[in-house]
């Protein structure tokens, strides 16, 4: 019965995709919104990277929700993953090369991550990508030395504050009489590091939040007891 239903579904989906393929006008995809944004984004948001102006300004609430999805998933991960017994054996430390490599990479990864976050409004990259690099900076030492651990309390404080900053910037706009999450502050000169008003601050909050959440989740996974 189950196989029959699955087959029926697949046939239906196949017929539908084939039918759509027959009718769809591929050469004439409507890109009106993209073109409209290209023509006004620089003036309205002051961000040289138009993708950022969409992510943080035009569709900023979607980004807040994506952040919240990550937050929720990390929280559920912490809830579902098992706690480690006190006497559970841990993997031994990695060899000399990996340990030294992790120590050397830590500052480099921090710099690269922060660079990508802080230039998010100018060049491709931004809070999500930079945040992942930050998380790897903190997670790499954990792989090199399984005995050490990340302080989950600090992580939960940092991620809570970073998320709250994002919303508070939105509320600040409301207190000044604009709509929630309206861009604030001086837009500055297009392409300068300090420009685009509140967007870099929002991206910094995104980056720190993504970084701390991912680091926390990875640390939770590493903490889970290995089955021998």
């Amino acid at each position: 019965m189950r196989r029959f239903t699955a087959a029926l579904f697949l046939i239906g989906l196949g017929v539908m995709i084939a039918a759509i393929y027959q009718h769809m006008d591929f050469s004439n995809t409507a890109l009106n919104a993209g073109q409209a944004i290209n023509s006004v984004a620089a003036q309205e948001t002051g961000a040289a990277n138009f993708v950022t102006s969409v992510v943080l300004a035009y569709r900023g609430i979607d980004t807040l929700l994506e952040l919240t999805i990550l937050f929720t998933a990390a929280m559920i991960g912490g809830m579902v993953l098992g706690k480690r017994r006190v006497d559970a054996p841990r993997d031994p430390d990695a060899g000399f090369i990996l340990r030294t490599g992790a120590d050397l990479l830590f500052p480099l990864l921090l710099v690269v991550g922060l660079y990508i976050i802080l230039h998010g409004h100018l060049t491709p990259g931004g809070g999500f990508q930079g945040g992942v690099i930050l998380a790897s900076a903190f997670f790499l030492p954990l792989l090199a030395r399984p005995g050490s651990s990340i302080n989950q309390d600090v992580i939960s404080i940092v991620e809570g504050l970073a998320g709250a900053t994002f919303i508070l910037i939105g509320l600040l706009a409301m207190s000044e009489g604009y709509e929630f999450l309206s861009p604030l502050f001086d837009k500055g000169e297009l392409g300068a590091l300090i420009s685009a008003g509140s967007l870099p601050v929002l991206y910094l909050a995104v980056g720190i939040k993504v970084g701390s959440e991912l680091a926390g989740l990875l640390a939770h996974l590493a903490e889970a007891e290995a089955v021998d």
């Binding site: 807040l64 919240t68 937050f71 939960s156 404080i157 991620e159 809570g160 504050l161 998320g163 709250a164 919303i167 508070l168 939105g170 509320l171 409301m174 009489g177 604009y178 709509e179 929630f180």
Partner: peptide, 20 residues
């Protein structure tokens, strides 16, 4: 400005800050 967005923003803010 419309207070309606607070119906969405305030619960999210509280959820972020709850553990702190």
């Amino acid at each position: 400005m419309n207070l309606l967005v607070l119906m969405i923003a305030l619960p999210l803010l509280a959820a972020f800050l709850l553990s702190i």
